[in-house]
Design a protein around this nucleic acid. Structure first.
Lengths: 336, 336
DNA sequence: AAAACCCACTACAACGTTGTAGCAAATAAA
DNA sequence: TTTATTTGCTACAACGTTGTAGTGGGTTTT
């Protein structure tokens, strides 16, 4: 009714008004000016629901992530939002809490035009990917970031987990590490596997034999993880270095070390993937591999918008890799 | 076309199908079952754009916050999302980056039915509140949380900043504090003023005269803040305790202390508002007042949904206060 | 001067759903 | 038996916008 009302006010047909507002070439400059002025005067704004419905595009994207209380996904959202705001898009957030079923039901909600595109970082538990292939089949623009499904052919934005893990492990070796433990987490996660492979490659490269006892599979229960790490560190035969695949395992390591009276880095060196801005203030400050979270968010969003705008035309790179960087701090410092 | 298509398949009118799908009492159980079965078979889902448009409700709420890389707003979103998911609502996220203009332009986007309700935590710089009153005038359900505009009559969910600051300051005094500095931040923020008032009240209560030199107005530039804190701590006449109104100022204090060789808590005690889960691992572990972020998010969302569902009927509490808790750690421990 | 062509605007039919009004047939009340 | 009432369905008009297909009046072309 509102466009109609505005049109009546101007003694114009509402098609004319609609076109004028969208700066159509069919409308004279004079009329456009008149319409714009009146629209401003009456504080007219298009009804986004009607417009979305008519155009079958929502100007909205969905971001599906496992967690938001997280030093990685926070900056990612930041990056995504910054691009979305530039493009005039709206950002829906969905949290899976690492639960595949939730991931599935969320994707089901997004199959029918509610969003113009989807960015997703998979849950730890996602083993079956049918729900993602369903999105792909419906030709909904889709981009994976960080936690990807390797075999699905959509653009992916990741960091160089393999190389970074290789560098991190080499860093530990260079600083005297001989028995280096790897604290793993969920098996389904592409990134953790990449990191583990990087770790193994570094061992091999430096002629260190891999020791199955030094690869610890941690999980989501923090108490269990503490016990696993405690078991690892109590024996005589304990490792001299720990590579935690995620930050929370490094923090758990700190906790266990303090409990057992082990000194970092003298007794044990620690390195981890982390994006926390608190790590410089830990005691000792924690050496980290820091992922370019913000940039990954921006890049993934930029790719998604290209997909949305051109649909099938352009061939986008299947994989975009943005490098992580190692920041040395005291937890891997070699004491003389 | 899709409802129509499904109807043709069933030899029913599309109104009947629509009603059957929405479990209307006008439709017989047998027909409902038949429709539901066919809908499932053909994988029919209502078009949310069409439905939203027709019903003039988007089943979407907006959350406007200053930042997402933040240990407070993270859990808040978590809480909001958990309620929204229960209610079948979708959550749009908008970041103001503490910029009032962005806040204004975001609210302008939300005036026309794109969302059924809005939750907002104001930017540091928000002094003018016309854009918020505009929302109120359009009768868009609105809830403030944490950083509120006192004078606008909408439900507000906050924590007991005043009392918590009073308790925190008393805690410092109890542990021997005589010269207690307060590190403030933006002037516009209701919460910071509340905290400062709590601080001042505690001083008065314990007969400590307030010293203007001990109230430091910090800002958004981190370098400037470090300088301000450095200036505060270099003199002979330095404070024996610091109450940081926000976490980043406490971390800055840690940094300056380490630089100046001041030992915490021996030379200086530190307390702050913070929700970081890293504070136990700082050296020394940092005493904090922890806000019930998740609960605030849930509560604010629950109130918003009541507003949305009943519109004007029910009288909701103007202010909901959820208490923060003080967690003592080593940074305020009294050494004997 | 007739035909062709622009220009600036109007008319109108979608988009897919929902709610209201209507309408037979069956059942209940008078 | 006649008149209400209920049941189970259909018809249809919205919701506000947008894109396509006109439509006259003016200008240019032949």
């Amino acid at each position: 009714m509102n466009l109609k009302l505005l049109a009546r006010e101007l003694n114009l047909s509402f098609s004319t008004v609609s076109k004028a507002l969208r700066d159509s070439h069919e409308i004279s400059a004079a009329t456009k000016a008149r319409v714009l002025a009146k629209a401003k005067e009456l504080n007219y704004q298009v009804n986004p629901l009607a417009s979305s419905f008519r155009k079958q595009q929502s100007k909205t994207i969905a971001v599906i992530i496992p967690e938001v209380v997280n030093d990685f996904f926070g900056p990612v959202i930041n990056g995504i939002e910054s691009i979305a705001q530039e493009k005039g898009y709206h950002v829906l957030i969905y949290l899976t809490h690492e639960d595949m079923q939730k991931e599935q039901s969320i994707t089901r909600l997004l199959q029918n035009g509610r969003v113009d595109g989807i960015m997703i970082s998979l849950s730890e538990e996602t083993s079956d990917t049918a729900h993602l292939e369903a999105l792909q089949q419906k030709e909904i623009p889709l981009v994976f970031f960080d936690r990807i499904a390797e075999h699905i052919a959509v653009p992916k934005v990741i960091t160089n987990d393999y190389e970074a893990a290789l560098v991190a492990t080499s860093h530990l070796i260079k600083h005297g590490g001989k028995r280096i433990a790897f604290l793993s987490i969920s098996q389904n996660l592409s990134i953790v596997n990449q990191r583990m492979n990087g770790y193994l490659a570094a061992l091999e490269k430096h002629g260190i034999e891999q020791d199955k006892n030094l690869i610890i599979s941690c999980g989501r229960n923090e108490e269990d993880n503490l016990n696993l790490i405690r078991n690892l560190l109590v024996g005589k035969n304990r490792p001299d270095s720990i590579f935690a695949s995620v930050e929370k395992l490094a923090v758990a390591t700190y906790q266990v070390c303090s409990e057992l009276g082990l000194r970092i880095p003298r007794d044990i060196k620690v390195i981890t993937f982390s994006n926390s801005n608190m790590v410089p203030f830990l005691q000792p400050s924690l050496t980290t591999i820091t992922q370019p979270a913000y940039e990954m968010g921006r890049e993934a969003a930029a790719i998604l918008f290209k997909l949305i705008e051109k649909k099938r035309h352009s061939f986008l790179p299947e994989k975009t890799i943005i490098n992580s960087i190692l920041v040395q701090r005291d937890s891997t410092r070699q004491l003389q």
